[in-house]
Nucleic acid binder design. Structure first.
Length: 920
RNA sequence: GGGUCGUUAGCUCAGUUGGUUAGAGCGCCACGUUGACAUCGUGGAGGUCACAAGUUCGAGUCUUGUACGACCCA
């Protein structure tokens, strides 16, 4: 009967052993390695991994991010694309430098003790030893990235790309050196871009300070500021020219408190008369807006806070910082100045003030606006291209609402400060010749792709710019620098650029995503991907972002150890609505990850059943089965498989724009519904294949003969389809099970097996099986109501005639096996006490249950059903009686509603008759 | 201050152009170890779709407003 269980699976799924077995096998067989040559005759499908920082440790955000990418890559790989997932790391300038500086601090040193060269060597050592560990951790999640192409933003190759990009932008006049107020982190000792200086809502104070008129101490102007220490650098007070309160003051002079420095009152439209006192102190060296005012009025720009955040006379500030304040930290100086102002009677009032203060995104220090020389990229021409590809549909962003954010940012784009005053990073490819610069009028920097050793003009010594580039200046080239750019002949670049999908979190839409689009459009004239998929953030149950400092994180490696990689992936994908945050409870891993583990267990048990009952001998391919040999259940499950394939395809795809590389309006919002994909696949394998088909097929498998072969074939085929559909999501367990299938010749690995396709023609409808399902459910309901023990078989009589009777007749054995009943089909309902249920198709189910029937219970059930149906029918009749409805609603709908009303009416009559019979 | 999004079952969320009796997972209740599966099975309870008005024959779905919450930007 059953096949000897020579190949039977262990009763418990050993995920650890399976993961350890299959990842290396895939890897050794080169499954993950894409080929530029093959891409010539297959569609390439390319994703670049958002490179984690070299110093990063894997957290749930990476788990979510890489799972999404791996699902897409594995899906497309099976679908026949040349799938390439490029992994790598980011050297992360400031972040990495901070880590090493902390190490040095623990040893009692600063980077300045070491000096630049040794410090950089030290960081390199550190990166070589512990860097990139995160990539190995990604492997334990099953990530099928092409490790042969692992990249690093600071590798020699990518450094070439960085210099090339800088020089090209310089040649087009888009890179320039500017003297202006930028965001400065006094702790990191470097400038930051606008995006790197993050706003934090802060409870601060608003200080109102009185400035007396220089020639008439009886008159004054009061200004308000959140940073009173900056008054030392004030060079003017600005009022609006139309503000009658102040027009008499314009042109006169005020005395700064404490220092008695004389400053003018000026008129400038920047001042809003309705805000505060309508008069604004102007500190051009320490506020970006004030800087603009200062430039307009050609004011001096005294610098009174140095690079370390210490108050002192740095530049053009002679006589502005009293000795008692010099050398103080800016916040200490603030308190001291408030004391001095109070003593002088210049402090009018202090109010609590809620405002946003910029903080360094790497160390959270309050950012100091500071006047300095920096390198900038003029972004506007690049932004135009990035806007154009979105508008033309060559690029889409999902969820679509982010497109507005993207557009808004690009339309108001500001120049990008790309120079950093740190040591870890790409040195700016600019050299200076001090001799020429000092003698000639020429002060043009020497910008070069290659190192400059001598001054091209005088042949003398040159020195390289001390600054390094913003780490994002290398990241923004990632989609093509990793493929060999600027080498136009690179096979990878030709084969795999532009790529397809970028998967990341919305936080770095500006930092990275939009800049990659700009770089791709600018340097290669094509958007680097056609789809940006912005997934949500992993949060805890209080909706707080998971973070090290809050201690609310979950280590994905713990989850892999306890539940398996597939369980983790399942949880990530199944809960992943488009762009929706993922809530996980760090204190209850069981709650979050048990569903994934349970799903794997279920799958495993289906596999065990299959192997023990279907055996390992050859099964027929589904195509050779004669249509008439198929049972209703066979036809049904094959239908369901087709539907599952269609649902999965619709949830995931289309993989790329189907027409000329641009999304149509219809297509644009489609696809990447990972949770829908998961649900469609789960429903098929669990609710359809396991719950119904498997149960129905048991007796057929137990009896030798032609029908057993049909059942074996259909079962094997359906399970094969299920495994293929599930593989991108839960690759390990599906591969392990698939290897055991007694299937017709197949490729050696599920990872490279073909993604399933719907049958072209449906030979037989599976609808008849719905009768079985409904009947079984009705019998089960009766059994549950009367508490019939599972081992007890009940009599079940189906009252039907005509074709329905014939259809039911063919399925009585199946119904009986699943519902544990002796089923018969008759024309006339048997008399006597019984539980009677009217099925949707009008068939009456009679379960006699001799001696057990409770009349009250039966009446109660019928009463309930009648009441419910009556209510619905009344509502429906009301709708049909409404002439406006019948006149205006689509005729098909009206017809359908009429038919439904008839059906309900007849059912109601049947139920009422049953109730009456009970009462007599 | 400007903008975007959300509010559907106890919890986390689906619900695609308005049209059956609004769904899933988890949780809950009852019964159960039947030769794949108790990490499971079977049956069940549970929702005035935040609130108010409007458009419509018809609104969870469209419009406006209100409340609460979240995020982004300045």
């Amino acid at each position: 009967m059953t096949t000897p269980d020579t190949n039977s699976l262990p009763s418990n799924y050993d995920f650890a052993a399976t993961e350890a077995e299959w990842y290396p096998r895939w890897s050794e067989r080169g499954v993950f390695t894409a080929s530029a040559a093959r891409a010539a005759h297959r569609e390439p499908f390319v994703i670049v991994l958002p490179p984690p920082n070299v110093t990063a440790v894997l957290h749930m955000g990476h788990g979510l991010n890489s799972t999404v990418q791996d699902v897409l890559i594995r899906w497309r790989r099976m679908a026949g694309d040349e799938a390439l997932w490029v992994p790598g790391t980011d050297h992360a300038g400031i972040a990495t430098q901070n880590v090493v500086e902390k190490q040095l601090a623990a040893e009692g040193h600063t980077r300045f003790d070491l000096g630049r060269e040794p410090f950089v060597e030290r960081v390199e050592q550190f990166v070589a030893q512990t860097g990139g560990e995160i990539l190995h951790q990604l492997k334990s999640l099953g990530s099928s990235a092409d490790w042969t192409r692992t990249a690093y933003t600071f590798s020699p190759g990518l450094s070439v790309a960085v210099r090339e990009a800088f020089v090209r932008l310089w040649e087009r006049g888009l890179v320039y050196k500017g003297h202006r107020v930028i965001h400065w982190c006094p702790r990191c000792g470097t400038s930051l871009s606008d995006e790197e200086a993050e706003f934090t809502e802060t409870a601060g104070k608003l200080y109102h300070i009185r400035y007396l008129l220089a020639d008439d101490a009886s008159q004054s102007i009061t200004v308000a500021t959140t940073r009173p220490e900056t008054m030392l650098g004030d060079v003017a007070v600005a009022v609006n020219a139309d503000d009658a309160r102040y027009t008499p003051f314009v042109g006169r002079e005020l005395l700064l408190p404490i220092t008695a420095v004389r400053i003018p009152v000026i008129a400038d439209s920047y001042t809003d008369p309705t805000f505060g006192s309508g008069a604004v102190k102007i500190t051009p060296a320490h506020d970006a807006n004030d800087f603009d005012v200062g430039k307009r009025h050609a004011l001096t720009m005294p610098v009174i806070i140095d690079a370390d955040g210490i108050v002192r006379e740095v530049e053009l500030a002679a006589g502005r910082v009293p000795p008692s304040l010099a050398g103080l930290d800016r916040f200490v100086a603030r308190d001291r100045i408030v004391e001095l102002l109070t003593a002088e009677g210049a402090l009018v009032k202090v109010e609590p003030h809620q405002h946003n203060v910029r903080h360094c995104y790497r160390c959270d220090t309050v950012v100091e606006p500071r006047l300095s020389d920096q390198w900038f990229v003029h972004m506007q021409p690049l932004a135009e291209k990035a806007l154009a590809v979105l508008r033309s549909g060559q690029l889409r962003i999902l969820p679509e609402r982010w497109e507005a954010v993207y557009v808004n940012w690009l339309e108001g784009i500001r120049d990008w400060n790309i120079s950093r005053q740190i040591w870890w990073g790409h040195r700016i490819p600019v050299w200076y010749c001090d001799a020429c610069d000092s003698t000639a009028e020429r002060s043009t920097p020497i910008v070069s792709r290659d190192p400059v050793l001598f001054c091209p003009t005088c042949g003398g010594a040159v020195r390289q710019d001390e600054d390094v580039l913003d780490t994002w200046f290398s990241s923004w080239l990632w989609p093509f620098s990793t493929l060999g750019w600027p080498d136009r002949n690179s096979a990878d670049l030709k084969a795999f650029y532009p790529g397809d999908v970028l998967v990341t979190a919305p936080e770095i839409l500006f930092f990275w995503v939009s800049r990659m689009v700009m770089a791709g459009c600018w340097f290669l004239d094509a958007t680097p991907f056609h789809t940006v998929y912005l997934h949500g953030t992993v949060r805890d149950m209080q909706h707080r972002k998971m973070s090290k400092s809050l201690g609310n994180g979950i280590d994905p490696l713990d989850v892999v150890r306890l539940y398996g990689a597939d369980a983790l992936r399942w949880t990530m994908v199944a809960g992943l609505g488009l762009g929706v945050d993922v809530m996980l409870d760090p204190d209850d891993l069981e709650k979050s990850f048990a569903p994934g583990r349970n799903f794997c267990t279920k799958l495993w048990n289906i596999g065990r059943f299959l192997l023990s009952r279907v055996g390992t001998e050859h099964v027929d391919p589904i195509g050779v089965l004669a249509p008439e040999a198929l049972t209703a259940a066979d036809a049904w499950i094959l239908d369901r498989l087709d539907q599952a394939i269609a649902d999965c395809d619709a949830a995931l795809g289309p993989p790329r724009p189907s027409f000329r590389g641009a999304w149509t309006e219809v297509e644009k919002g489609r696809g990447l519904r990972l949770s829908e994909y998961a649900e469609a696949a789960r429903r098929f394998v669990w609710n359809e294949l396991a719950d119904w088909y498997l149960e129905s097929v048991k007796p057929r498998l137990a009896t030798e003969g032609a029908d057993r072969e049909v059942a074996r074939a259909v079962l094997a085929h359906a399970f094969d389809g299920a495994l293929r559909l599930l593989h991108p999501m839960v690759p390990f367990i599906t591969e392990a099970l698939w290897q055991q299938l007694p299937q017709t010749p197949h490729p050696a690995l599920l990872a490279t097996a073909a993604w399933p396709k719907e049958r072209i023609t449906r030979v037989l409808s599976g609808d008849a099986f719905e009768y079985t399902r409904e009947t079984v459910q009705a019998i089960r309901k009766v059994r549950a109501e009367y508490n019939v023990q599972p081992g007890t078989w009940v009599d079940a009589v189906l009252v039907a005639s005509g074709t329905i009777a014939t259809v039911l007749e063919a399925q009585i054995e199946t119904i009986g096996v699943i519902a544990r009943g002796r089923v018969t089909v008759v024309q006339v309902a048997p008399a006597g006490l019984a539980s009677r249920i009217v099925l949707a198709n009008g068939v009456e189910l009679v379960v006699p249950l001799a001696g057990m029937i409770d009349v009250a219970k039966e009446r109660q059930r019928l009463d309930g059903e009648i009441a419910q149906l009556d209510k619905q029918l009344t509502a429906l009749d009301g709708r049909l009686a409404n002439e406006k409805f019948t006149a205006k609603a689509p005729p098909e709908l009206v017809d359908a509603e009429r038919a439904k009303a008839e059906e309900w009416r007849s059912r109601l009559a049947q139920l009422t008759a049953k109730l009456k019979a009970l009462g007599e």
